[in-house]
């Protein structure tokens, strides 16, 4: 594996996760529980799409095969996508969306905090901008964890169910392979074990304050690093990519 190959692969992982979770959040547009949340969710979705655009643009430059951010976003199929499985899970009810977002935002917060120190200047610059945004996102989702966890019996139950259902997708966030090993050695990306420790500490603190139980699921799902996804991703990409693919020579 070359440095170029490892960086390209890693940038896809980051960029795809942002793009897919941004897509899921944008599905809430016009259907949120209260107008303020409609605004917040669209705003957060926009941040993720922006972050994905920066990362995929850079991925295309690193790859040097003439693919830009749109070629990477719209012309790759299910098996070529590298987003974490948690990001493609359907929205479910609002508690499920908040649980998914909280688990992922916490991961992203600690990951990008480290990526700010990347020896790759472009990654470091993207991380500085993203970390500012994700700090707000995490505050937003953490507050909703408390409101729903410690709100009514119904909201508590819904949120606990959401957490339980999503828990099996969390360990994948900290899986490392030869790409990680290569880039850690180069000082470009952090060791995910460090992120995991920070993530667990923060997640457990918020769950305790929200009067929620740490899920006991031990069953784990993984596969995104090899492009093995859940069945949900195919439908998501079919929707996202169809206009782009239907008019092959078009500029928009």
């Amino acid at each position: 594996m070359t440095l170029q190959e490892a960086k390209f692969e890693y940038l896809l992982r980051l960029g795809d996760s942002s793009l897919i979770i941004g897509h899921r959040l944008s599905e809430w547009c016009g259907h949120g529980p209260i107008l303020e949340e409609d605004i917040a969710l669209i705003n957060i979705a926009l941040d993720f799409v922006g972050n994905a655009t920066s990362l995929l643009t850079y991925a295309g430059q690193v790859e040097s095969k003439g693919r830009d951010e749109d070629a990477l976003a719209f012309m790759r199929g299910e098996r070529e996508y590298r987003n974490l499985l948690i990001t493609e899970q359907p929205n479910g009810d609002y508690a499920n969306t908040i649980a998914r977002q909280f688990l992922f935002d916490t991961y992203m917060f600690f990951l990008y905090e480290e990526l700010k120190n990347s020896k790759d200047e472009t990654i470091a610059a993207i991380a500085v901008k993203t970390h500012k945004e994700i700090t707000y996102h995490l505050r937003h989702t953490s507050e909703w964890m408390l409101r729903l966890g410690d709100g009514t019996a119904e909201s508590h139950e819904r949120l606990q169910n959401g957490l339980n259902d999503l828990w099996m997708f969390t360990s994948e966030m900290f899986e490392m392979d030869e790409v990680d090993a290569f880039l850690i050695k180069e000082g470009i990306v952090p060791d995910l074990n460090k992120i995991k420790a920070n993530w667990e500490k923060r997640v457990f603190e918020v769950l305790a304050e929200a009067t929620l139980q740490i899920p006991t699921t031990t069953f784990k799902q993984k596969g995104s690093k090899e492009g093995k996804h859940s069945e949900h991703l195919g439908f998501l990409l079919a929707e996202m990519q169809y206009v782009h693919r239907a008019y092959p020579r078009a500029k928009w």
Partner: peptide, 19 residues
């Protein structure tokens, strides 16, 4: 049309507009 916008730039602009 947010989820089906033809490229990332148009998707971002439409998100910002609807926001």
């Amino acid at each position: 049309w947010i989820t089906r916008a033809p490229n990332l730039r148009r998707k971002a602009i439409l998100l910002a507009k609807v926001q």
